[in-house]
Each structure stands twice: as C-alpha cells, then as structure tokens.
Design a protein around this nucleic acid. Sequence first.
DNA 1: CTGATTTCCTGGCGGC
DNA 2: TGCCGCCAGGAAATCA
Length: 287
Amino acid sequence: MPELPEVETVLRGIAPRMIGRRLAEVEARRPDLRRPLPAGFVQRLTGRAVIAADRRAKYLRLHLEGGETLIVHLGMSGRLVIEDAPPPVAFHHGPSIAVADAPHTHVVFRLDDGTRILFADPRRFGLMDIAATDDLDAHDLFAHLGPEPLGNGFSGPYLARAFEGRRAPVKALLLDQRVVVGVGNIYASESLFEAGIHPARAAGTLSAEDCDRLAAAVRATLDRAITAGGSTLRDFVGASGELGYFQHSFRVYDRADAPCSREGCGGTIERVVQSNRATYFCSRCQA
DNA sequence: CTGATTTCCTGGCGGC
DNA sequence: TGCCGCCAGGAAATCA
C-alpha cells in the first residue's frame, strides 16, 4: 500500500533521525524478505555513517560513507518504526519494562545515539539491497524505471508519447513503473477520477488534452497526499513513530457503491477488476 | 514486443 | 464458534 506519497513521508520521517548518525548495530532476523538480503548485509552496514537519504520511485535510499547505498522497499505492508533511545539511567525509576518489538520485525538498525529503526513487514513483499552509490541509476532496480511524476520529465506530452499505440487500459499503464514511477493501485484510481478519464480506456486513444489533464491529475493527487502525510508526520513523529501507513481519505478508492463526491454528479462509485486489481471510478464523471 | 495472468506472503474478514 | 477461502497489493516472472 505504500505508494510514492507514503514512501516520501517515510523518507522525511527517517532522514532527520538517520543522516549524520552511524549504524552502530545491524540485526537481520531472517536471511530474506521478498528476496535474499545481499551478501554480507550486516557486516557491510555495521559502523557506517548515513551521509544522505533520498527516494527513487518507491525505493528509499540511504547513502553511506564508504560509497555504498542501502536500498529499502516497503513492499505493500512494510513499515519503519522509529524507537527513541531509552532514557538515561539517572532518570529511570523502578524496574525497566521490556516492550516487545513490533510484530514481524525482520531488520533492526541501532544508531549511535541509541535510536532504533525497526523494519517490520508482515507480508514480506519488501526488499533490501546494497549497491555502489556512484552507479545507482544502472542498478537493476532503477535501470528500467520511468520518470518521477513530480519531476520535470513527466508531462502531458510525455504521457502521450508513452501511450502512443498502446491498447492496454490506461489504468494498467499508470501502474507500469516503466511508464511512470510511484503510482500504485490507489492513486491510479484517484488520478483517473480527478482527470475524468475512464480507467478502461485504451491508453492510445487518449487525446493530447486527456494526457495533459491526466499528468496534472497524477501530480496533484500525489502532491496532496504528500502534504497530508506531512501533517501526519508532525502528529506522531517525535515520540515513537511508525512509518508506512497513513489514513487518507480517498475520493473513489475503496468506496464502491458510495455516492460520487463531485458536486451535482449524483452517480455511484463502481468497482471493477482490471488484470486482477480492483479499480474504482464514477461512470458519470469518467469517459 | 504487447498485454494478460500468476506468483510471492500473511493478516483480516465474509460466509457458512 | 470455528474454519475455509478469498482478498489486499508491488513488482517480477511467465504465458499467450
């Protein structure tokens, strides 16, 4: 479920806590997530300082001293839990109370200030990898990705080119990370609703104007979600923060049979399945 | 090449 | 109450 806005929010949550800090201890509680952890995972990370952090598509990247980058993907159920350092002994009264780690915690980083960052992922669709920082674009995970939807490479004309001659439903192509990254099942439905485009339209039949509206809608939808994520961050980070899921209100996603939210529409949100994925839309608003 | 389908994994929930 | 089956979904693999 983490799509670009959620991953961006997680990045903004962990970056100030991790940049400039050293990974004092790294614990891998199992050898694999969706795929095996890279060879020497613990040894290659332990003792390294985090010098920068960014996001590409739905991947978090922690750039480490020594020229390597830790790549983290949350899959659909992955979370990062920030756990503050325990208080100094002088302020500690009574017996310590052991608090269990979040369920399904697979990897734990302890920073040199005592903060712990827990990676928990029940469904284990997440992944971690380590790659040379100076050649990340060539890495398998990044080499075939399309443009960032919030960057300069994404626009109506770009979409028009990408859609040209394609007969697949436009919704399917929005989910294709080679076309544009970061859009998942939720924001694909939301963006198409905002643009007034039917999800089943063959992508190649979209006009230039359709593509302009869709590009703008994708951008606006993701921007709004990032803004919402930012306010969520302010609410709960600072204490113990659990990053990965957020409560958003969606206009069509998971609202089957609910009235369309567009003023004066009076239609009903429909749910259909496209290539085994639920799609939500309003047939009055989207043609 | 394109597009559709399957696979991975586990918690949660509907239905009986 | 209990259990079975299905659904959720990112991305890659596989199939037609």
